[in-house]
Design a protein around this nucleic acid. Sequence first.
DNA 1: CCTGCATCGTCACAAATGTGTAATGGGCTC
DNA 2: GAGCCCATTACACATTTGTGACGATGCAGG
Lengths: 325, 325
Amino acid sequence: MIRGPQAAPSEGEAGDGRADAALVAKICWYYFREGQTQDAIAQRLKMTRKRVNRILGEARESGFVQITIADPAGHRTEIEEELIRKFDLRHAIVVPVPLGGTDVRSFIGAAAARYVAECLPPSGSLGITWGGTINAAAQSLPQRSGDGTRVVLMSGGLAESAPINPYDNATMIARALGARCYYLTAPMFAETAELRDILVASEPVRSVLAMVPSLDVALLSAIDLSEQSKALEYEVISRETWASLLEAGAVGDICGHYLDSAGKPLHHPLVQRTIHPPIDHVLQIRHRILAAGGEHKVPIIRAGLLAGFCQVLVTDEAAGSKLLD
Amino acid sequence: MIRGPQAAPSEGEAGDGRADAALVAKICWYYFREGQTQDAIAQRLKMTRKRVNRILGEARESGFVQITIADPAGHRTEIEEELIRKFDLRHAIVVPVPLGGTDVRSFIGAAAARYVAECLPPSGSLGITWGGTINAAAQSLPQRSGDGTRVVLMSGGLAESAPINPYDNATMIARALGARCYYLTAPMFAETAELRDILVASEPVRSVLAMVPSLDVALLSAIDLSEQSKALEYEVISRETWASLLEAGAVGDICGHYLDSAGKPLHHPLVQRTIHPPIDHVLQIRHRILAAGGEHKVPIIRAGLLAGFCQVLVTDEAAGSKLLD
DNA sequence: CCTGCATCGTCACAAATGTGTAATGGGCTC
DNA sequence: GAGCCCATTACACATTTGTGACGATGCAGG
């Protein structure tokens, strides 16, 4: 059984030295490329079939072998066509809803990763935000050598390490791309609006934020404000804040900008405390990709689309068809 | 069982309309990404397990799903290191030799395809030559949208359709890249040197050849002159020509340029009849990749390296280690 | 309408795969 | 050197997968 790609990246595995990478590669070649049986490979390499089996399993989970499904380029799904037309997008990618218990975000993340890998030029720069979808993307981003590639995390950090942490996200993506990583060394939300302004004006936060408008690609995620919102679950925002955001008409946020259902940015007190690039800076990024799915994210995705946050949408069938209603 | 990628591309299959591409994609997602069992997928999609099974098989063979093995970038094999040092290469890729009866060329082709896909810029131009290795590459080249990508076939054609035909090669590669393809509308060898000169000077041959120096990437293959040479087997050259080439000291050719074992181009009569770009034009191509392997190709590969034909070598372990002797 | 051809579903089975459990053995600490 | 921990092996077994045989269904042409 191939477990989904969101297997916890626990346990210290730095250089992945457990099994000689060359050996793993060889086994993978024989198995996937040549179609040899695990048994045959084991005999040939003088090891147990079980060992081969385990190595193959690990190779898949760790992303050592990537299985990519042809992008039916030019042969778009109806739903993709519709989305492109309705929201005037450059491109839309709609992935199927998982059958089993798998998290949709890992599907969407994988597709987004693929797209990013394709459109991020060598030595390009990529801005990312925070979220489970981005995390999933990080895990299935194809390795690349990326000379001079830069990754910029466009949100502050969380002091208390949530299961999904902005800094982790950024680190993983940067590692996969072989990129240099720039973090916002500030909390996601400052304690007061004044402090926020001071932080944003101070180095090194200022210079990292200053990179945003000239980024090549932005990989954005959308945070919803439904009951199932991860922001709530991980206590990124308190229940009171949540309630007050809802009351103000917010449906979620993209890159820290809370939007109402029409895509208009709100002037909620929280926004004054958020460390993030201004909207118009984000909108100056040449290539903007929004990766988000799941039915509860439909309102914020729609808001983001209306606000012009993205030219490329990566989502799932469920959200995609709801967006068309 | 996953059969090797060189399954004959026989039978007319143009648009591949047998099974809805979207359906195939979905099944592949469920199976490869989510790890669902074929049975579960069949039930969910209300079809037989056998059907799912068959679709998956076809998807693999047709290259609809690609299985890529992580390039241990920066973590090179010793043999790769040595090759790079000894021949002053920019990069070397050494694939394992197949266990079973699989043709080495499909391995090498796959690796080369992957490399090309990586280094060919969007809207870039790619020059290719003729040969089984290139053919294998075509078959495992990841699909891409390639706006404005161009593929130039740098050799003439064969009138009598050999199992591996230059035009087929070019077409397949162009199709995979979504590229516009430029052919040399001339035979591989003209009947006389005079006719060759006339052809080369005439349109449209001239303008296609004129594209060569400014190509972004060249994917070159090496044709050997051993007894096992495919050129001989497919009767691309006659046995007499073959003998006379050997006598002149040739060890094979790259892009129609016959070289001796030191890499010096020969002035054999055949060369005067060959429709191909001059050596210095080929050497002006910025990014030159030589994809060839198998022990019998070692002499011509070495010659090609000495002649400076490539900065990147894709070969197999057997040839690689022989090259280091 | 019937015939021939081809594709698909059903069944069945052998091979391959994933996953336990217990035994083995190598390397480490003490 | 004894004892222990860990990883690997050997063995066994349930699932999953690939494939062949055979009948049913559907379609084109006479």
